[in-house]
Amino acid sequence: MVFPSLFGDSNTRLFTYWTSDGYNSTGCYNLRCPGFVHASNSIALDVALSPVSTYHGAQHEIILHIFKDPKQNVWWLQHGNDDVIEIINNAQDGQHTTTQMGSGHFAEEQAGGASYFKNLQVVDQSNALVPPGDIKAVATKPNCYNIVPGKSDDAGDYFYFGGPGRNPNCP
């Protein structure tokens, strides 16, 4: 996420956001959430990520796993093999936010243009990683942001996503 009013700069950062009522009146970021425990010394939330991908230039990836521990009933975000860890439309005056999603470019630009997740897997009932099955792409404001799913031998189940937010086709 890039959030200058929260972090004071335009750096890309790994973040989590919690809400119990769909962003109506509750919510907080990262370690500002009561009950959130940071359990890694290899990656931190709120810290700028580096290096970051550039549009039609060098591409960089991080490996993340999000899962729920069925015994402790807690959620984990895992970076690589180390345990650790949306665009929110704050529309004003009936207009969509100008916040970009991903690179700010639509999913059709694919590698080098759009942002992506690849090698998607889910945890099944026996706690094993398995392919997610059919991925249904839903974009509620496709002229603002969109998503294109796919499957390949190289990238497994994947999806490209992104968009500029408010633009002439997305009031």
Rank of each mutant, 00 (worst) to 15 (best):
N167F: 08
S53V: 09
A139W: 01
G112D: 05
H65W: 09
N24K: 15
D69W: 06
K151L: 12
L6C: 06
S10E: 13
L6F: 12
A48D: 04
A114K: 05
H65D: 14
A39R: 15
S53R: 08
G162H: 05
M1G: 12
T98Q: 07
S5Y: 11
S50G: 09
N24F: 08
I85V: 13
K136G: 07
S115C: 01
D154V: 13
N143T: 15
D153L: 11
I87L: 14
G133F: 03
V47R: 04
A58I: 02
A139T: 03
F159V: 10
A91S: 15
C144Y: 03
D69K: 05
L64Q: 08
L45Y: 04
E109T: 15
T99L: 10
T19F: 01
L49I: 15
A155W: 13
F3D: 15
P164I: 10
V74E: 11
Q92K: 14
D93T: 05
H96R: 08
A137W: 06
H96I: 09
C33P: 03
T99A: 15
V37K: 13
S126G: 05
Q59L: 11
V138P: 07
I62A: 09
C33M: 05
Y29I: 02
T19I: 06
I63K: 12
F67K: 09
G27E: 04
A39H: 06
A48H: 00
W75E: 01
Y55W: 13
H38M: 11
K118Q: 14
G104Q: 07
C28D: 10
V52F: 03
T97H: 00
G80Q: 13
D153Q: 10
P149K: 14
V148D: 03
G94V: 04
K68D: 03
N24T: 14
N143E: 14
T26W: 02
F15Y: 13
G133M: 04
A111E: 11
I88A: 09
Y160N: 00
N73K: 15
S152V: 03
P132Q: 06
G22V: 04
V138S: 09
D21K: 00
I87M: 12
W75T: 02
N89L: 01
F117S: 03
Y160H: 07
F106E: 03
F36L: 08
V2P: 03
N143D: 15
N90A: 12
A44E: 12
P142E: 03
F3Q: 12
I147D: 00
T19A: 02
W76A: 02
R166G: 02
W75S: 03
N143V: 08
G27P: 01
P34N: 15
H105L: 09
Y55C: 07
H56D: 11
I85D: 03
D21F: 07
Y29N: 02
V74K: 15
L120S: 06
N90T: 05
F15C: 06
G133H: 05
Q125V: 10
M101I: 09
K141S: 10
G35T: 00
